[in-house]
Design a binder for these strands. Structure first.
Lengths: 196, 196
DNA sequence: CGAATTCTTGAGTGCTCATTCAACATCTCA
DNA sequence: TGAGATGTTGAATGAGCACTCAAGAATTCG
């Protein structure tokens, strides 16, 4: 029953280009003209393919998590809480200061850069950050059951602490701090964790 | 030689209203229409008095630091490093979750929400954050000289750690976290500092 | 008072934004 | 081959943006 004209662009490449733009400028800072220029798609094609700027952003977020948050998935596989946290925080420091990617974190940058008309975008990003935190909470709960985290420590509080530091590192990176500076903060953090 | 018509508005009140708008929406998120409505000044009067949106923002920043950063000035007066840091971090937690002010920190929010056309605004905010950090560095250097901070700890690294946490708390507040949650993170941080 | 000066006002400037649309192109299937 | 379906294109649309300006209003000084 007639399939229609096939799209001429590579979806993955387009999402990658759009990611760079959103990552560098935030949701509202990125204009359709920017996105059109970076992806090579005319505005009409973007709307045909993704419905809206917000629709494109949502797909870009999925791609961001898949490609950037590998360090988080790897981190929770580490055998001890110390190693989990080291892997996690060093991953944040590296991901937010990559030589080939914009400085900062899209989930942090995007959220704060969303103004009035983008309340739903802010909610979406807050939800994704929350999911990320739950990811770490679950690992720390397991650690407590295994005796690797003291009974006196609430895994949610510990994850909240690590997450606050992660967001702080992302802010510093977005503000121009270099990787060494971030890694020095990570090193000091790991010198002794609050419950050790 | 003729003084001209006196201004009809109270400068301090106008800056206060503008502060609320910038604080809630960031630099680029705040429109002149928002500012005009909140202050009661017509656009023409704003430009006559402040020159531009950026000029108004700069004056608002001064006012912000004067009124909100009292906790930082008070904190460094505390006698011990522990008390300095407690006062500082609790001040951040409270200032970013005030019942009568928007959530988050203007210096963090404003910086990340500044897109392409506002590079100078971003630089201004980065400079002000840097000045804030130096403020804490100086206090920690004194503490090290007094033996209140181990010789092995670099005051700049320690201040960087506290500042990363501060920014992280501000991001969480902007994302909707409540005061109790932030204070729980502060409590865990203080349970044992990395160099203790 | 009248001249000089500064503020206020309201309407308007040109620009950029996200989004749309009609015409055309390229595919599948019968 | 032709009908149906979908993708691409370039131009256009209306809304919102920071900012401006001419005219009028309030003041001080001579």
């Amino acid at each position: 029953m007639a399939m229609g004209r096939p799209r001429e662009f590579d979806l993955d490449r387009v999402l990658g280009c759009a990611l760079d733009v959103f990552w560098a400028k935030g949701y509202e800072g990125a204009t359709m003209a920017d996105l059109s220029a970076a992806t090579g798609l005319k505005p009409g094609s973007v709307y045909a393919a993704f419905g809206s700027k917000a629709g494109l952003f949502t797909q870009v977020l999925d791609r961001y998590e898949d490609s950037v948050f590998t360090y988080a998935r790897d981190a929770i596989q580490e055998p001890t809480v110390r190693q989990v946290i080291r892997h996690w925080l060093e991953g944040v420091a590296r991901a937010t200061t990559g030589p080939d990617t914009p400085p900062g974190c899209l989930l942090v940058h995007g959220a704060l850069a969303a103004g009035d008309g983008a309340a739903s975008i802010r909610a979406e990003l807050a939800g994704r950050r929350e999911r990320g935190e739950q990811f770490l909470v679950a690992r720390l709960e397991r650690a407590r059951a295994e005796g690797d985290l003291p009974d006196t420590v609430d895994p949610r509080a510990a994850a909240g602490y690590i997450f606050a530091l992660s967001s702080g590192l992302a802010v510093e990176a977005a503000g121009g701090a270099d990787r060494e500076r971030l890694l020095r903060t990570v090193e000091l953090t790991l010198h002794r964790l609050p419950w050790e």
